[in-house]
Nucleic acid binder design. Sequence first.
RNA 1: GUCCCCAUCGUCUAGAGGCCUAGGACACCACCCUUUCAAGGUGGCGACACGGGUUCGAAUCCCGUUGGGGACGCCA
Length: 467
Amino acid sequence: MTVVTRFAPSPTGYLHIGGARTALFNWLFARHHAGKYVLRVEDTDQKRSTQDAIDKIFEGLSWLGLDHDGDVVYQSQNAGRHAEVAAQLLAEGKAYRCYCSPEELAEMRETAKAGGPTRVYDNRWRDRDPSQAPADIEPVVRIKMPLDGETTISDLVQGDVTRTNDTLDDFVILRSDGTPTYMLAVVVDDHDMGATHVIRGDDHLNNAFRQFHLYKACGWEVPAFAHIPLIHGADGAKMSKRHGALGVDHYADLGILPETMRNYLLRLGWSHGDDEIISTQQAIEWFNLDSVGRSPARFDMDRLLNLNAHYLKEADPADLSAQVMELAAAGTDKSLSPDAQNRLTKGISGLVQRVKTINEIADSAGLYLFDAPLTFNDKARDLLANPDTQKHISELAEILGGVTLWDESQLDTAVREYAERNELKLGQVAQPLRAALTGSNVSPGIFEVMVVLGRDETLARLEQAST
RNA sequence: GUCCCCAUCGUCUAGAGGCCUAGGACACCACCCUUUCAAGGUGGCGACACGGGUUCGAAUCCCGUUGGGGACGCCA
């Protein structure tokens, strides 16, 4: 049997962290079993669904690198099929029309909450003769749930979960306007697309009991369920859109790498012994549902950043440079010279060493990206204002001008000799150089900087700083 | 209110009765390295929610309490 999983977002907003993880788990599970991972847009609620949201979700998914198999399914396009199934159920007496008014429903809800019956809907139309139907109300179609007994869902993550059937309402499968509700649509679509495993947030666990009986009523095989715990915010509450959860695009904008996000999301609620750094290849190989935890996890930015720092160091420098240049270009009206681009390509690995996001690389790349005149920060300016510093810089400029081979070890030797000769610590010489060459008191190793800048640019910058 | 789920360091987690005076990672602190900042290295701080059982033995099994979360729509 081929494994078929699906990710089924409702297009009412961006792809948030929780949705992204659900998608990832479905994707990993399918890839692990060499099965299919299908993407389905749950747009049965036309009022709330928007094209903009659909686009954003697709963008998020493709940024994450979760490619789906086959065409995207739009649930709204199956409305006819859904209605057909409802009609069939009606014909078989497994469903019935309910003519309750909104007021009646509200009343029932209130009595139930006030400690009344276990069911909200009191089944008042379940066995009533349709001839009693009020003429002015368009009916909905409800499915008959078992009246007694209990139902057990063997969930792949939650284990066996049992619920008595007297808490299961006859829920609506077709609205009064003839459109299907979510509950009907998922079951029909999941069946039609051959979903073998339904992996989703555990906020759907309760729905599984209802859907279970809908499958049965249709005479269909029930797929395996796996309800994964939700991701919570730092405050421990559900991370939903309305609780300030951010879309994956937000993290992309922050300069987080997709591979970071995949690794991070994977480790939230899933583990493989003590392993922390898990490549996507490895994840596909290792992923299973047994190791998914049952308690909700909190989102931790520090951890994400730490992981990102790791993946940044593994990333392709050319690729990173391109992204940094794009960011830099967006932040200024100055265009980047070819020299600047070359310098960035050479120097980026030194930059990557000290940051956690792509944006931070861009922030620190100024020393390579922009041609003189440099902008100096306060500390650099103070340092350069010192007459001793001025003296060292001009003497050093001369010495460096005479260095035969412009590489780190030669430069290192030259500067060290100068420091020793003047009975200075290396830092006393290196810091002024740093200020003059980078405009800052913080930078990659100063000899590395000189090599990346090249002889001409280095000398030019020293010249400029000493006047 | 009803139903369901969960409970190990601040956070993510390892742990499936003896390997646990509970391991790893992030964060934090200290030290080392050092031309700055990082990175790296070494060490430190720090948890089995509580109460009952079961057992020779419980973080692991059972019950209860407490705490947290989720669901109760003609939303998905």
